[in-house]
Design a protein around this nucleic acid. Sequence first.
DNA 1: CTTAGGG
DNA 2: CCCTAAG
Length: 606
Amino acid sequence: MEKVVEAEGSDEGKFEETGLETSNFVLSSPKNVTDPVVYKLVRVDGNGRLVPATDDELMEVEGLLENEKRETHIVADTGQALGCISNEVSPSGMPQLESSEGLSQSENTEADTEKLSAYLEETVPSGAKSSSDDHVTQSGRVGECLKPLDGPLEGGSSTSTGCISSKPDFSKLKGEICLDNLSIKELHEVFKATFGRDTTVKDKLWLKRRIAMGLTNSCDVSATSFVIKDNKLVKKDNEDGFNNVNLGAGKEHLAVAVEYNEDLLNNLSSQIDDHQTTSEVRLGNNVVENNFASEDLAADQRAAKRVRKPTKRYIEELSEAESKEYSGRSIASTKSIGFRPLSSKAHARPARNVSLEGRTVITRLDSLGGFGIQVPCVYRIRRSRPRKNVTALLKFHPSGMGMTATFIKKGFDVHGSQMDNGSMNKVLEAKSTPEQAPEQFVAESKKETTPTDMGQNMGLKYVDPSGDTSDDNVVTVPTAKGGIRRKHHRAWTLSEVMKLVEGVSKYGAGRWSEIKRLAFASYSYRTSVDLKDKWRNLLKASFAQTPTDKGANSRKHPSMLIPASILLRVRELAEMQAQASLPNLSTGKLSACGGGSVNETRPGYL
DNA sequence: CTTAGGG
DNA sequence: CCCTAAG
């Protein structure tokens, strides 16, 4: 509702308008209506205040921004996010509006379980698509994304969506269509004819609405009658009511969290753009329970919703990649992200818990293109202790939160009351530690492997708890006192190790903070302690391995193997350092015994 | 806050 | 990786 972001930089300019808003989203589990939804996202904009980033990182980002060529591949990693970021960016405000309306409208219908799944389908993009990436800023792109909503029928190019490849049977769309009389199967066919793709949604109402919207090229679809003729919706009954179900309406369904969402979304979306703003706040963990087919998720999303822009995490990744000598392709889409230096505050990132088949996994759904699904979250406050709770958090965002906050709270309440039973401990956990900093991203694995196929939105689908291709390896560990702690693990990449070694050689072991600052400036995570620990491990490894000769390569299979050369170097340094310190205690310091290639460049050290 | 060490 | 102690 308000624009909070002042233009900090030209880059952000585009976003200023839309400002950040908060959007809260709650879904209820498809299977259990009683079980609340768990999904909420709130973004608060911050004028940067909420965004956490270290100066170093910011700087890097900025650098990226400058060079940037908008090439953005939105990265394979998040694959989905792709394109539609542009909605926000698009010059004309229209697109955004449309999309938001469409969303809200579609969401607007009753909250029925099926619908939910349908909704999800729409919102969740599948990682599959990676083709057109650079959408950012391309208005054309926007059009494409939105197109699906505009009925394909109109323009001769049926299936114009471009993303879809199936061949619809258009004959189904001829003449007057009375969706009310069609069976689900028929609706599916019509759906296909209309949108050029299949859908797995079984909710008749949803299908009808969707089709109607497509055919009429409008979001203004009655919920009660669906007769379409000549691309126009012929309403039989009174259609009002549904189009504007906003705040005012439907308060009676308090029970369902979804309702709230809808309302909220409607309101917010109509006024703002919910694109990712500079900062987001995670009010709680989002837990979504669902198992819906994912097949056409991608298609649906592409067609219907807009996608969110890259998350911070994403940015970080980019910057990291860049900082590394990885001269890979350019990664630059940072521009689309509004990030500012001033924000060195903490920022919370939403993490999402998805519980599938009974178990809860935490994942980051970054790339969900969908509207409500959110995800991101990167931030730097590493290891903050769990404590504040949601309400506390809310206090921090005075900005545009008026009613938003209210909604959120409500959502929480609902959610809390229902979850409380203890059925889901995880949820509670999450709730209590909203602030937690989810891990950053696991850039390493990504960069070291093919950038392309990273698991993008594994989010909705099967998220493998352990396989974290994704990003956060956050494991909650129960503590004796009942407290819960999170442990995250971020594998060290080769490049990190190399930097570490180099840093040690330059600054000496022990100067962890220095090394951290100088060599690891780009890696926001990795604290000096981490460096120290890693070094310790490296030493252990180097001594254990090198001597034995035979163990050189094979060693264990465990963690990734560290190149022998590095271990060697480590050993050298270790010896060197050891000598430097041990030798003369009494003699003053001769220090630096040049063991080898590296010299102890520190005069005063020791 | 930074280090060092133990867990 | 986390936690704690010590400078």
